[in-house]
Design a protein around this nucleic acid. Structure first.
Lengths: 242, 242
DNA sequence: ACCTGAACACCGTTCAAGT
DNA sequence: ACCTGAACACCGTTCAAGT
């Protein structure tokens, strides 16, 4: 009879293959969750079907029972992230403030999961949470009195701006990841001085304005740029509000 | 002695390897040109180092003598495309018209090489032609009287808008390519009716505004959307012009 | 300096076979 | 219905060897 001692560890040369009856309990949610974890930790380039499967202790083929293909997985991950967007009660009398707050909320959510924007722009989102956000913005513009056609265009262009900016930001995040730097600030200053150094080597007679204003060109950081562009759009929208 | 007849075709079982002396005459320009050709014909997904090498009748390793890696190749292809942008003489008294015309020119050039935008947004362009375009816009804004800091932000945001829109367009082009449709118009109507059909299945009580205005939401095509967003930005810029 | 074949360490997806 | 191993047809990049 065996003793009641602690179980002996499995010897390393034994391939501890679980019996076929104990199957992995996969599910779409689990796969999406795992995908997001890989995305957050190591970026879009690391997010492969094989990698997600590995993380779930199975082979890549197993995923295809729950997800049509990689594109669908990315869409699902993206919509999961959009679920983090918190929306207030609509108040059309304060439409501009609310649109600004909404945009900053999206900015923060997308930047929290840097690389997800790289997946977003490549697809036409029709997920639950994407619709929720769209309904909020579109409803706000209509209730504030904008004609439906113009409101549709405003929604479309604002969304493009939010995702486009996040995409650009994600490029920097993946460069930060690739470099050995730790803080975003360190990366930002390193990047800015690198650009500035390059600009200083340019022929002044061909690019007088760029070379002459290097410091102005690299002054603003990502969030300042985002806010400036956002105000450009909001002012443009305002001037089309009856 | 051999006859003077027509040369006999090479038998298919003979591997007609050219003698090692006749080396391929590669060059960076040739590689970039070939890359662009593949991109235009079959899209970004088809543009691989191996494919370009194949097109040039050589192995993928040969490219690395002229190009650091795939990223550099994409940057070079992108800047080659930007070289097609034609710029007028700057006339600051007509800055808004000129900025509009410039934007439409960029729109057309980027859409002519659909997928190149997908390569652009992923990199920080420092090429010759990218600088040329930047100098034009920045100089125009400065000469029109805008303070350097604001002009830098306007340049940055306008560029993001142009590339972001082109990127979005390229997604549709690659879907058009994947489908069996021939004309962009056919694709656009198919896409619009598909979206409309999907929206009609949504629960009305949760998304009243979106479901209630389906036709307004899908009415505008790509260029209309682009122009609307452009005017939003130009108006915003104008209101910051002293 | 430029070019090459072979190799390395990866991909997404399919398919027949299992439960 | 769900899961699996093996295979297919691809990737980008490196490296030692050639000229």
């Amino acid at each position: 009879m065996g003793s009641k001692e602690e179980a002996v560890p499995v010897p390393p040369w034994r391939k501890t293959r679980k019996p076929a009856q104990i199957r992995r309990q996969l599910s779409q949610d689990l796969i999406v969750e795992t995908g997001l974890r890989v995305l957050d930790a190591e970026g879009l380039d690391a997010l492969s079907m094989r990698r997600v499967a590995q993380e779930l202790d199975t082979g890549p083929a197993s995923l295809y029972a729950h997800v049509a293909n990689k594109e669908e997985l990315l869409e699902l991950v993206y919509d999961r992230v959009l679920g983090e967007i918190r929306l207030p009660e609509r108040d059309p009398s304060r439409w501009k403030d609310q649109l600004r707050a909404y945009s900053l909320e999206v900015y923060r959510v997308l930047n929290r999961h840097a690389d997800v924007a790289r997946a977003a722009l490549a697809n036409i989102p029709t997920g639950e949470n994407s619709l929720r956000a769209g309904e909020f913005v579109y409803g706000l513009l209509l209730e504030a009195g904008m004609p439906p056609g113009n409101a549709a265009l405003c929604l479309d262009r604002l969304s493009l701006y939010l995702i486009g900016d996040a995409y650009e930001g994600s490029v920097h995040v993946s460069r930060l990841r690739a470099s050995e730097m730790t803080s975003p600030e360190e990366y930002f200053t390193a990047f800015a001085t690198q650009i500035a150094g390059y600009y200083r080597t340019l022929p002044r007679e061909r690019f007088p304005y760029l070379v002459g204003h290097i410091d102005d060109l690299i002054a603003a950081d990502g969030e300042e740029r985002f806010r400036f562009g956002l105000e450009l759009m909001l002012d443009g929208i305002e001037s089309r509000m009856p």
